[in-house]
Design a protein around this nucleic acid. Structure first.
Lengths: 165, 165
DNA sequence: GTCAAGTGTCTTGACATCAAGATAGTGCGG
DNA sequence: CCGCACTATCTTGATGTCAAGACACTTGAC
């Protein structure tokens, strides 16, 4: 089955036959698929009255395990947003009583963000919904293909995640 | 090499051993990689005084071929943004003389957006820069692997691109 | 022809994000 | 124990995006 990137690549080959546009076959698909996923996630989370950005923060804390707390800095590396954005997100989640801010006992510059009981429940519920939806999207592929795809993507993400980049 | 998603998945398996989080191995990598790519693109385009969103619109028109014009509606399906966003983008690009708006001769509700000569040059320059950067990112993979990856991703994007979704 | 439903674009208002810089606290070298 | 570079978080101001709806025009049924 053809997709929009096939059409895009064909158009470039016609308009710019001098260029090798092979990289777009992979990376344009990654960008476009991520955009489709964002939309699908937004719809899936609306059943739980959660925005995607709220889910990202709450589940980062949920994964940290008891007592479900991380510093804003740790949340930055997990969610790939800037520090100003994270301050704003924590403010809004705190106003909704899904997280609370505590002073870091070992560094007076620092803060710890802790999940409330309600925040934890909401994160757990939304995660189950997300996994169901993602499973549907991935049903196009066999288990073996999913494993191959994950491995190939890991090779591309690893440099970003390990070098300070 | 391990990446952030490996750590994320391991954390879920510890915290929620009752759930099958295998879908995250693929789709969380797609989302995170797209975010890294956005950042890299922003930096690459800044050499040409272009924002990523400007590049997306200009190259859609560039690919259309002479006379380099499309309707706002056609641009929506290529760039995956809402109509309000596209109106705003066209306004700003027109103010910078990179595109111009023409009435559609065959439908009086409609408009055609046409690339100016300067817009075309800027798009061509930025494309070359983008391809160079993408090639560097993809150098982690062999040509064969890139082909496999593109094929697997196509299976996931095709349903989104072909069903009206 | 005419009316209703559909389509294409734009407007509005709320809001999330970013880059850059401010502020406060840490901790090492001497 | 002092000074200075570094780190962690927050503030600010500009901007891009979205959802929802308004408006003008088109199209098909009758």
């Amino acid at each position: 089955m053809e997709d929009e990137v096939d059409r895009l690549v064909a158009a470039w080959r016609r308009e710019r036959p001098d260029l090798d546009v092979e990289p777009l076959e992979v990376l344009s698909r990654v960008s476009r698929l991520a955009r489709h996923l964002d939309r699908a996630r937004r719809i899936a989370f609306s059943e739980h009255q959660l925005e995607p950005w709220e889910f990202d923060v709450l589940t980062s804390l949920r994964r940290a395990g008891d007592p479900y707390q991380l510093s804003p800095g740790q949340l930055l590396t997990q969610t790939l947003v800037t520090s100003g954005t994270m301050t704003n997100r924590i403010d809004r989640l705190a106003k909704k009583s899904l997280v609370e801010r505590l002073p870091d006992p070992s560094d007076r510059r620092g803060v710890l963000v802790r999940l409330t009981a309600e925040g934890r429940d909401r994160a757990d519920q939304a995660l189950a919904g997300l996994l169901a939806q993602e499973r549907a999207i991935l049903s196009e592929l066999s288990r073996t293909q999913r494993g191959e795809l994950a491995g190939l993507l890991r090779q591309l993400t690893a440099p970003f995640d390990n070098i300070p980049g």
